[in-house]
Computed example of a mutant assay.
Amino acid sequence: MILGLHHAQITIPKGSEDKAKEFYCQILGLPEKEKPETLKGRGGFWLQVGDREVHVGTEDRFDRLTTKAHLAYQVEDLAHWRKVLVQNEIEIIEAVPIPGFERFEFRDPFGNRVEMIQSV
């Protein structure tokens, strides 16, 4: 039996942890969660997102702009996040509408596709 989702992982280029922490921890305001000692030497970092985790790993020679794979962050104030991202020069991509939700997409500074979604 599958009980739920524990974490999801995205990747960034090796050595770009500081830039990624600036985006994910400072701009998006996600708190960093300490990795277990046994995994600290592998690079990357972990984020706490509500009661789940996003693991940010490192991976080179991968074109993140070619994939539709993404994370969708559920938010309470979609307009706020649109404003924050635009102020930080992140291009907003209008998403195809789906019933019961407002949403938009963007690419993080490394090319990862990200969605912000709000129930209506």
Rank of each mutant, 00 (worst) to 15 (best):
L3W: 09
D77L: 00
G29M: 04
H80C: 11
F23P: 04
A72K: 12
I90W: 04
V96S: 08
E115K: 15
V75R: 05
M1F: 15
E22W: 02
A95K: 10
P97R: 11
M1Q: 14
E34Q: 14
R82D: 01
R61Q: 14
W81H: 07
L5N: 05
E115T: 11
G111V: 07
D77G: 01
F23S: 01
I10H: 04
I117K: 03
G50K: 08
L85V: 04
A95F: 15
R61P: 04
F45K: 13
L47K: 09
R52N: 09
T67A: 07
L65K: 14
V75M: 02
K40Q: 13
E76T: 05
G43K: 07
I117D: 06
T38N: 10
E37I: 15
E89F: 12
A8T: 00
R61S: 08
Q118D: 14
G100K: 15
K68I: 03
E115N: 12
R107L: 12
A69D: 11
K33N: 00
Q74Y: 11
V114F: 00
H70M: 11
I27R: 02
E89A: 15
K83C: 03
R42T: 05
I117Y: 06
D51L: 00
Y24D: 07
P31M: 00
N112R: 09
F45M: 10
C25S: 05
E17N: 09
R42N: 03
E91P: 02
R103Q: 15
G111S: 10
E34R: 15
A69G: 05
F62G: 09
R64C: 07
K21A: 00
Q87F: 01
P13L: 08
K14G: 08
K14Y: 13
C25Y: 05
T66H: 11
K33M: 11
T67W: 10
E94N: 09
I98P: 03
E53H: 10
A72R: 11
G57D: 03
R113G: 12
F23M: 00
K21I: 00
E102A: 12
S119P: 13
K68S: 13
E17H: 12
Y24N: 08
Q48D: 01
V86M: 12
I27S: 02
A20I: 13
V75T: 12
L3F: 13
K19D: 11
V96P: 04
I98Y: 13
F23R: 01
F110I: 05
E17W: 07
Q26E: 05
I12A: 03
H70L: 06
H6W: 05
I2Y: 13
I117Q: 03
T38M: 08
T67K: 12
E76A: 06
G29V: 04
L5A: 06
D63S: 08
G15D: 14
R52T: 14
G29D: 09
E94H: 15
L3I: 13
K19E: 12
A95I: 06
H70F: 08
L39G: 07
V49Q: 01
T11W: 15
K14Q: 12
E76Q: 14
F110T: 10
L28Y: 03
I92A: 05
L85H: 04
E37N: 14
P97C: 08
I93R: 10
